[in-house]
Design a protein around this nucleic acid. Sequence first.
DNA 1: ACGTGAGTGGAAAGCGTTTGCCGTTTCCGC
DNA 2: GCGGAAACGGCAAACGCTTTCCACTCACGT
Lengths: 339, 339
Amino acid sequence: MASLADVSREAGVSVATASRVLNGATHPVSADTRSRVLAAAERLGYSPSALAQALVTRTSRLIGVIVSDIVNPYFSVIARGVDDMSTRAGYVTMLSNADRRTSSEITRLQTMRDYRAAGVIFAGSGYVDDPRTPELAKAVAAARERGVLSISLTERDIDCPVITADNRAAAYDLTDHLVSQGHRRIVFVEGPAGMVATEQRRAGFLDRMTEAGLRDLAECVEGGFDFEAGHAAALRVLASRDLPDAIVAANDEAAVGALNALRQARIDVPGQVSVAGIDDLPVARFVGLTTVSLPLYELGAMAARRVIDAGTAGPAPEPGPPVVLPHRLVPRETTARRP
Amino acid sequence: MASLADVSREAGVSVATASRVLNGATHPVSADTRSRVLAAAERLGYSPSALAQALVTRTSRLIGVIVSDIVNPYFSVIARGVDDMSTRAGYVTMLSNADRRTSSEITRLQTMRDYRAAGVIFAGSGYVDDPRTPELAKAVAAARERGVLSISLTERDIDCPVITADNRAAAYDLTDHLVSQGHRRIVFVEGPAGMVATEQRRAGFLDRMTEAGLRDLAECVEGGFDFEAGHAAALRVLASRDLPDAIVAANDEAAVGALNALRQARIDVPGQVSVAGIDDLPVARFVGLTTVSLPLYELGAMAARRVIDAGTAGPAPEPGPPVVLPHRLVPRETTARRP
DNA sequence: ACGTGAGTGGAAAGCGTTTGCCGTTTCCGC
DNA sequence: GCGGAAACGGCAAACGCTTTCCACTCACGT
């Protein structure tokens, strides 16, 4: 557990000098001294205390990411993006699950702030008219004062950079695909009530349907972002009337749930009904689900990159318009041209 | 960004006193002083620098978890267990992906050690005869010297507490289920070559088959832990000879892959062939896969708990035998009695 | 000879805590 | 009333680093 003092003693120099050679300061150091210090550090197996460094420099190489639930692949892909970028730059990732509770997001942010994280990335979508958002916004501002840069991966009423995907456009493009395949009666399985992402995706669906003059044939049913919700929604669709041409779920997991319900009911997909989702999670590939690929990994990576850059390049021009990363339609086997 | 000094000034006491009231030290403080400090802290919105605290106490409230890939549900469930427990105790989780590279595990451990993490949890299984394991062991020892407690979730040649599940028994029990359903010709789709978990699961399978006098009908085929591997393996099984009674995959993901291949080939599961996996990941429930539920969440939670307890209860009796958490057979719809 | 300045190295001031060690009081028991 | 122990509060020393400021040594030009 050699400290810098140990190294400097071993090398016969002051801690100042040791520090300078060990972290490439601008201050000149003779080649001889330098190598003596390096040798001493090597001999002692020295590695600096990140804590002490962080304390004195008032910023750490810690990057926090606050997700709703890391078990949800949507978030784990984002987290992976963050971690890959962090690791590459010598940072380490702090992870926290907030279970979609804004209050938890606040607490976690504060904890990370107390560790002087260089940045905190908010991966979860917020709620529409969430009464707690102002509180979060205040916490974000307070954190910024301590030097932690917050970044949101969805648009929220927080004053911080946004790096995001276009949910509305994703749903729009997906719907467009279905429409262009000749489908007319399409039901949309909504996401969890009140979430911003839910609204956006629904809007994209409705917009395209309206443009296609199919507004009357468009139907939105209650759903959720999980398997069960999609399953239940499909069951309800099955029970209520004759089959629609297609079912668009608010995300892949719900789509897979719907798919299962349909297949259990011996409905041929895509023969009788087409099914599609949004996100392009790993599971979508497994089941051949048509979906829209969202740049989840890239979102995480880019957010981390931004935090890192802000650290090295000084307090950058913070605000700036939201960065929107491109999505991409991925047609697979659960959709087909309408007979 | 009020510091303790600010609080003490505001309250008209020394930082020592302020510190004492703010962290319930044993040192007595008058009620009056106490409330003055508390009020000052409140007024200033004080919150301690976790860094400074960690620096002086030589231990942080940071718990690291090193996984192979957080996108893999096996690991994200473990991470979730860790984080839930950590959060509850006021700790924060550091996450790192090592992609099964022992060298990465070493680097990540060192980084976490430099932050004086209270503990680091190794979630990934090691390789048989991995030449780098001794290096890892050394790093673990070095970390322990700095006060960081390592815990492994699989048996490895590292000197640290082990909290694990019994892979061999899990495979054994699963095979037993199949055997008791009358299946005789069973093929086992192995995990990635060289991994300890792979060996253990294969052994469990083989043990039960041997006991049942079915050793000759048992067949192990190359596979992997992912969808594609299971898919490919099933294809090979399909091509080579007449159908086996059942296919046991080394894990759920591979099982789902196999399942897909079978269904695409119009093989009825479980009518003609039974299929089962190990892990009980969320996806298993989706597809109704018979599997063995491993206490992944609990493993993570218990490991975190142990780290936390070690912190409060002093350097506990480290060694102790491996703790083995129970698994549970979960029969679902992909297995059935042999016709 | 003598200022000048680049090249080098060190002393020391923090960063924000915790805590051991000491003074004061204050309070009891006798 | 007196001795001694609590009770209470402060000083200051760490913890391990970064960085400012200063001092010194040489070449160098004049």
